[in-house]
Simulated scan of single mutants.
Amino acid sequence: MPAKKEIAVIGLGKFGYALAKALADLGHSVVGVDINPEYVRRAQDIIAQAYEADATDEKMLSQIGIKDLDRVIVSTGDSMEASILVVLNLQAAGVKNIWVKAISEAHERVLYKLGVPFVVFPEAFVAAQMANRLTAPGLQEYFGLGKDVAVREIIVDNWIGKTLRDLDLTNKYQVQVIAFRLAGDSEFHFVPQADRALKAGDVLVLLGRTEDIMRVDKF
């Protein structure tokens, strides 16, 4: 089982609330932040802590100890400006593991350029999945290899300068690197080269049994 984590969700609208609830249901400790008092009250019964605060205020983020949490998810509604400001504040506070909900392709590109490791564009993802299912029945079963098969994205940190051949993940952990994304890029590439030196911020996509994938020690 994955270790329980302390996770912040900034923005408790429809997406943020649903994500916070799902994380809490999985047993994680969730800290929610939103400037809307109604959203904060709604979340208080399902998560560990909920703060009514403006996440664009850098001092406020510091006061709630945001940098000490394992993950921070930014889901600030329809304001691209607010989202970017929150990200900059998180980076200034020393937060590294940032996930952000994008509201447009332009927003997504800006976030990657800012060095955000994980960007989620829910509407585009769901639309693409539905289009595939409508036009190619059965495509959603592509990963129907068993209930214990998982895909995991990890950020290169202590593997800087090493190659996939050096890491030998297939033999050490029984997992396969199926794709990668270069630091600062928004597009994934497939069939990674075994002898390319990894750089800080690169993202690797692993495929394997859940237990094996969670054993991979990237730090």
Rank of each mutant, 00 (worst) to 15 (best):
Y142I: 14
L169A: 07
W99S: 08
L139E: 00
P117V: 10
R165W: 04
Y112Q: 00
S186C: 08
D70C: 05
I155N: 02
D168I: 01
A128Q: 14
D185I: 03
E105P: 01
V86Q: 00
R71N: 08
M130W: 09
G138A: 06
L111S: 10
A92R: 14
L85E: 00
E108M: 12
D168R: 01
I73L: 15
S104D: 01
L111E: 02
T76D: 03
N132G: 13
V86L: 08
R181Q: 06
S79K: 04
T163Q: 09
A150W: 06
A131Q: 05
V74P: 02
L85N: 00
W159L: 09
R165T: 07
L167T: 03
V156H: 04
K67E: 04
A128N: 13
S62N: 13
W159H: 08
L61V: 14
I98K: 12
F125C: 06
Q129P: 02
K101L: 00
K172I: 11
D70V: 03
L69H: 03
D148E: 15
V120C: 09
G77W: 09
Q140G: 06
R133K: 12
D78P: 07
V74N: 00
V110W: 04
D70K: 03
A131K: 00
L61E: 10
G77A: 07
Q91E: 01
R181P: 11
F143K: 07
G184T: 06
R71L: 12
Q91K: 15
T76K: 05
R71D: 05
D157P: 03
A124L: 14
V119F: 10
V95F: 10
S62L: 11
E153C: 09
A106R: 09
